[in-house]
């Protein structure tokens, strides 16, 4: 009988200890939450919780430092790669990651992102791309798709006046400083597991001081896309993935 199975020796999946017990503030179905757990599990499985320092951004994940049970610093908007550089230059043997959304990383922090990647700073950049500013209430992001509606592109993003969606991963992949750049998602079990594997690879490369690793997670924003979580994941598959295709963008041979 099923009840008999619930005992410690049969446990096959439980929340990782690298996440705290705080209830995540993210909206129902948000990819931030799953991405947090995949990154935390990667840190857990590599046994590097005590050697990892994270940097939280400004945006929906501004409070990421409450959830990752590792030492964390909260950066100013867009400045996480500079903060990470400062940490890594004085503590070169620690594992350092930044966790940033599309506004933080690809708009206000573009210079910091590009130059950290160009220097080949040995840290992991986790980039959540949901094509919208979530925390401030659904404004256009640098990654908002063409014709996609937001509160600041209410008739859809007009690329003639608002610019085109920015493929930051392809951009940084062209720099010699980056070692591993990949785009994933966390909306299905298989995709989430792939994302975790990518995080683990990136952290292992960091140990070997191979250069900057950037893992983009194409994600949903049910609240600001104004859909249910299930609808948002379907919309993401149909609209985001054709433009932001999943897979390795730059991977070591």
């Amino acid at each position: 009988m099923a009840e008999n199975l619930i005992k410690p020796e049969n446990l096959v999946y439980d929340k990782t200890k690298v996440l705290t017990d705080r209830v995540l503030h993210y909206c129902p179905g948000c990819g931030h939450s799953t991405t947090h757990r995949m990154l935390a599990e990667a840190i857990d499985e590599l046994g590097i919780q005590g050697e990892t320092i994270g940097i939280a951004p400004v945006g929906c994940s501004v409070l990421a430092y409450y959830y990752f049970d590792v030492d964390m610093t909260e950066a100013a908007h867009g400045r996480a790669p500079a903060v990470a550089t400062g940490i890594k230059r004085v503590l070169p043997d620690k594992y350092v990651f930044t966790y940033q959304g599309d506004g933080d990383l690809a708009a206000i922090g573009t210079a910091e992102t590009i130059h950290a990647c160009n220097r080949g700073e040995n840290f992991l950049i986790v980039f959540i791309n949901n094509g919208i500013y979530g925390m401030t209430g659904g404004q256009m992001a640098p990654t908002t798709l063409e014709n996609m509606k937001s509160t600041t592109s209410p008739r859809g993003r007009d690329v003639k006046t608002m610019g085109s969606p920015l493929k930051i991963s392809e951009l940084v992949a062209s720099l010699p400083g980056t070692y591993y750049v990949a785009r994933h998602s966390v909306h299905t079990p298989a995709n989430a597991r792939k994302t975790k594997r990518a995080f683990k690879k990136a952290l292992e490369y960091q140990k070997e001081k191979k250069g900057t690793c950037l893992i983009e997670v194409v994600s949903n924003c049910p609240s600001n896309w104004k859909m249910t979580p299930i609808e948002s994941n379907k919309w993401m598959e149909e609209n985001m993935f054709p433009f932001y295709s999943l897979g390795d963008i730059k991977a070591p041979k």
């Binding site: 199975l5 619930i6 005992k7 049969n10 446990l11 096959v12 999946y13 439980d14 929340k15 996440l19 209830v23 995540l24 993210y26 129902p28 179905g29 948000c30 990819g31 931030h32 939450s33 799953t34 757990r37 966390v186 909306h187 299905t188 079990p189 989430a192 597991r193």
Partner: peptide, 17 residues
């Protein structure tokens, strides 16, 4: 474990014989 892996809030614990 599929449900637990994909649960954003990590509320599912899984056991297997």
């Amino acid at each position: 474990t599929n449900c637990a892996v994909v649960c954003p809030d990590g509320v599912i614990t899984v056991y297997r014989e």
